[in-house]
Simulated assay, not measured.
Amino acid sequence: MKKKIFMIVSSLGAGGSERVYWLLSQYFNSNKYEVSVIVLNSNEQCFSTNIKGIRYIDLKTVKASKSFFKLYKILRDEKPFAVFSTNDHINILTGMVAFFLKVPHLIARASNDPRQMREFVGFKNRFYNFFTRLFFFRFDFVVCQSEEMQRSISKLYGISLKKLKVISNPVLPNDLVRNGQSAKGRKQLIGVGRLIKEKGWFRLLDIVKQLPGNYELTIVGDGPLMQPLKNYVTANSLETRVTFLGEISDVSSQIIKHDLLVHCSFTEGFPNVVLEAISVGVPVVAFRVGGIHQVIRDSFNGFIAEQGDNTQLREYIENACNRSWLHQLIKEDTNYRFNLKTIGKAYESLLSIK
Rank of each mutant, 00 (worst) to 15 (best):
S10K: 05
G16W: 00
S17M: 10
E18M: 09
R19G: 01
W22Y: 13
W22D: 06
Q26V: 05
Q26W: 06
I38K: 07
Q45E: 11
N50R: 09
N50A: 07
I51F: 06
G53Q: 08
I54T: 04
Y56G: 08
S65C: 15
S67A: 14
F68W: 02
F69S: 15
K79L: 12
K79A: 14
P80V: 09
P80T: 11
F81N: 08
F84G: 07
N87Y: 06
N87T: 09
H89L: 12
I90Y: 00
N91R: 09
N91I: 06
T94W: 03
G95A: 04
A98K: 01
L101Y: 11
V103N: 08
L106G: 00
I107W: 00
N112W: 01
M117K: 12
G122M: 14
K124Y: 13
F127N: 13
F127P: 12
N129R: 11
N129I: 09
F136L: 14
F136C: 12
F139G: 05
V142F: 06
Q145W: 04
M149S: 12
I153D: 03
K155I: 05
G158Y: 07
K162C: 13
L164S: 07
V166D: 11
I167H: 00
I167V: 10
L172P: 03
D175L: 09
R178E: 08
N179F: 11
N179C: 15
S182M: 13
K187G: 10
L189W: 03
G191M: 07
V192R: 02
K197T: 13
G200H: 09
L205A: 04
D206E: 15
L211G: 05
L211R: 11
L211Y: 13
G213V: 11
I219W: 00
I219L: 03
L225W: 00
L225D: 01
K230W: 02
Y232C: 06
T234N: 13
N236V: 06
R241Q: 10
T243E: 12
F244L: 02
V251P: 02
I255N: 06
D259H: 08
P271M: 10
N272Y: 10
V274L: 13
G281I: 02
A286W: 01
G290K: 03
Q294P: 06
R297I: 15
S299D: 15
N301T: 11
G302E: 05
E306G: 10
Y316W: 14
H327K: 12
L329Y: 05
I330H: 01
I330Y: 04
K331W: 04
D333N: 14
R337E: 09
N339D: 13
L340C: 11
E348G: 07
